[in-house]
Amino acid sequence: MHMRVAGEPAGVIRMSPISYRLGTGALHALDARFKFVILIVLSLSVVKAGALHLALLACGQIALLSFLGCSFKSLTTELRYLLVLLLLVFLVRAFTMPGEAVFRLYWLSFSRQGAAAGALIAARMLLVVLLGTTLVITTRPAEIKAAVEWFLKPFPGLPAARIGTMFGLLLRLIPLLSVQFAETMDAQRARGVENRINPVYRLTWLAIPFLRRSFSAADRLSIAMEARCYTDDRTGHRLTATRRDWLVLAVGIVYGIFVLAT
């Protein structure tokens, strides 16, 4: 919430925690390409990780995210649907897997093995999400764009520069759209939309203005890009790898392999 624009009334801007934040830490300085590789290696190894490594990784992740200025509360509100889904996964596993019963609810039995398996799966899913969140928080869209371009360059026939631009735009647009959605909601509330009982009316007058506004924002964006003579072959963000990047990459990969092997 520390990114609120000065002068904006409180409550209008609900900054999503899943967007880039300024910072000067080690993770911000790391080369975006290396971050991508480490992210992919770690999220693959998480799929096979046992409880010990999951706990280790989760503690590290949560400490890192709170260090980066993402409060626990804002994170839980942002990920509430995921948390509900994870709870469901856990409960379904616990009640359907045969095993030693802890307690019974009518004909269902809550088994210990099921609970353990469910908790493991839920923790894995949560960790993958936290890893992605960390990448988005610590990497500028321009760096992500450059990294995507770099990875796609070896493939012939793919317009790497264009894909990179669209990727960067996607990342920039998600927080913008959520701000615009909240604004539209407030605007309709100010017009007394809550007095309307008909849900179709309320949804229509939320969705149509929101989409219209985002479309004209995209329209203005494309005009602005054209006015600045945007072309695909422009000089983008220069990514430079240092010795520290390679070191972090090596540590990440070794740790990933270690998790996979044990």
Partner: peptide, 23 residues
Amino acid sequence: GIYLLAGFCGLPVFAGGQAGIGR
């Protein structure tokens, strides 16, 4: 395609904020 690529790269864009090759 861009949406799937973003999810493939590990950005939380799939249902419930999930992502990754595993998904």
